[in-house]
């Protein structure tokens, strides 16, 4: 009884809140979502609470009933495992690049360096979208660690623990401690971000993501916008 009395008020905290939306977002959206949320709140007065994580991990949580209104995933295929409301919307794309700590201390100059045993290379685990996309890049990588999110790879580079790593172009733009290993053209839109409504209240946010304001913000953070190719 005492235990129940202690826990019940905490359970009540998860109920829906009419003037706020909970958004589950792929961790590569960490830098851009706060700006999007601010713009959305300015337009609608609805506050956004963001929860970041690997898209697969978040999918698992949503399947187990985590209280979210919107899911922004870096892998649209994951949505097949969820019950969503209405149509899903592709709202931005991103591509992978080979990045190094600022100053390129290990002098990485080309893709062949990633296969060298003496080079410390860090990539995403294949269970997260950036890792699956890395595997599709078609370069031979002798990895020293497979991290559970792209932010972890980025942190390894920023801390100088790794000589090179594969991250999103937007991560390089956002993190001053990290730079492109060599000039890399926008090879492919390897990752397409899809937005899905988990509750009916979420539809206006989904619509907002393709509005000019939101698309401009995304472009400013280095995402590719428009119809994904």
């Amino acid at each position: 009884m005492v235990v129940a009395a202690l826990l019940l008020p905490l359970l009540a905290c998860t109920g829906p809140d009419s003037d706020s939306l909970t958004v589950f977002a792929a961790s590569s959206l960490t830098d851009v979502l706060p700006a999007l949320a601010d713009a959305y709140e300015a337009e609608t007065g609805i506050a956004v609470t963001a929860v970041y994580g690997g898209s697969n991990h978040l999918t698992g949580q949503l399947r187990d009933g985590a209280p979210a209104d919107v899911f922004l995933t870096a892998d649209a295929r994951l949505l097949g495992r969820l019950e969503t409301r209405g149509e899903t919307v592709d709202f931005a794309t991103n591509h992978l690049v080979v990045a190094v700590p600022a100053g390129n201390p290990a002098a990485v100059t080309g893709a062949s360096d990633l296969a060298r045993a003496d080079m410390r290379v860090v990539v995403c685990a294949e269970t997260v979208p950036c890792g699956a996309a890395t595997a599709r890049m078609g370069i031979v990588i002798e990895a020293d660690s497979r991290e559970i999110s792209v932010r972890a790879v980025l942190s390894r580079l920023a801390l100088g623990e790794a000589d090179a790593g594969v991250v999103y172009a937007t991560d390089v733009a956002a993190e001053p401690g990290v730079e492109l290993a060599w000039p890399q053209p926008e090879a492919c839109p390897c990752v397409v971000y899809a937005a899905a409504a988990i509750t009916d209240r979420a539809r206006s946010f989904i619509g907002f993501l393709t509005s000019p304001t939101a698309q401009e913000t995304l472009a400013l953070h280095g995402f590719s916008i428009g119809a994904p190719g």
């Binding site: 685990a125 020293d144 660690s145 991290e147 559970i148 972890a152």
Partner: peptide, 12 residues
């Protein structure tokens, strides 16, 4: 372990 040593099958 995952933050310090990393994650590589057979090693960490």
């Amino acid at each position: 372990t995952i933050t310090f040593a990393g994650n590589l099958p057979g090693r960490t």
